[in-house]
């Protein structure tokens, strides 16, 4: 009985192998229009609607699997895209910053050339710190004694005169702005001329925390001044007719109003051209000439 079973099993196996080989050989031997190809085509034509129906019926299952796959893929994509977005944001910020700095530097250079300050040894410096209180209008720049910066050197930005160097370190310097009103501060008046008739005066700060207002003091009550008149450096030290470290003709600001006009308490207010709250790059005139000295 066992032998019979084994023989039968082997016979069936051999028969099936032979059938497979015959099918293979016959399939290869016949042309595309042969019997086996015809059977294949016929069966496919019969089964195509069944397959199509099954495919449609199982579409929700496929969609479900596809959703899982898409979700996993989307999570992976999300991580990659988030990282790429962060990188691009960083690059964009750097590019914007570089463009902004480039624009300001170009304007600074233009100002220097327009005012003829090339002979004054302008050194471009970056502002890296500003006074944290309203009482001290000072900034710290990244050029110091090693760059030739000395006490009293005038400092300008791309708009106008902003102040002078009041402390020098090896690789840095402190600049006191025109608007500094600190007690015992190092600010000092700037001798200036204003209006069509070049009226003499001394530019001084008004009060703490008001970087948009300066006073033009020591002006004669009968002086011909009007709002809108421009104020420039005179190039002399106030009270003395000797040379100043400030070059002559540096723009300072524009007269905005005149209080108590024509009296002894007359106050000429001016708005500085320079935006003292927005200082990124400045130029220190490291070779100031004492005009008139």
């Amino acid at each position: 009985m066992y032998d019979k079973t084994v023989r039968r099993r082997r016979a069936v196996l051999g028969l099936l192998v032979a059938c497979s080989l015959i099918l293979l050989t016959a399939y290869f031997g016949e042309s595309g229009g042969g019997v086996l190809h015809g059977v294949q085509r016929g069966t496919s034509e019969v089964l195509n609607p069944v397959q199509e129906g099954t495919s449609r019926a199982l579409k929700p299952v496929r969609d479900l699997f596809g959703w899982f796959g898409d979700t996993l893929s989307a999570k992976s994509d999300l991580e990659k895209l988030t990282a790429e977005r962060d990188r691009l944001r960083g690059e964009l910020a750097l590019r914007d910053s570089a463009r902004y700095e480039n624009r300001r530097m170009a304007r600074l250079l233009e100002t220097t050339q327009a005012l003829g300050l090339s002979d004054y040894g302008p050194k471009t410096a970056r502002v890296f710190a500003t006074s944290p209180t309203v009482w001290y209008a000072t900034i710290r720049v990244d050029k110091g004694s090693s760059d030739g910066v000395r006490l009293g050197h005038p400092v300008i930005n791309e708009q106008a005169l902003i102040g002078r160097v009041t402390a020098v370190f090896n690789g840095a310097a402190q600049v006191t702005l025109l608007t500094d009103t600190s007690a015992g501060g190092t600010s000092a008046g700037v001798s200036a001329r204003a209006g069509k008739n070049s009226v003499f005066g001394v530019v001084e700060p008004v009060g703490a925390g008001n970087p948009n207002d300066l006073l033009l003091n020591n002006v004669a009550p009968s002086a011909d001044l009007n709002p809108g008149d421009r104020v420039y450096t005179r190039g002399t030290i106030p009270g003395e007719k000797q040379g100043s470290l400030y070059p002559r003709g540096l723009p300072i600001g524009e007269i905005t109003r005149i209080d108590h006009e024509g009296t002894d308490t007359e106050e000429v207010h001016l708005r500085p051209y320079a935006n003292m709250r927005d200082l990124d790059y400045v130029q220190i005139l490291t070779k100031p000439k004492a005009i008139g000295a």
Partner: peptide
């Protein structure tokens, strides 16, 4: 037998060379 039949059916439906899948699945 099942392997042979399924293989043959796969070859027919998938329009593959007849006898390949049936021989291997057998």
């Amino acid at each position: 037998c099942f392997g042979f039949a399924v293989g043959l059916f796969v070859d027919i439906v998938s329009f593959q060379t007849l006898g390949v899948s049936s021989l291997v699945l057998l």
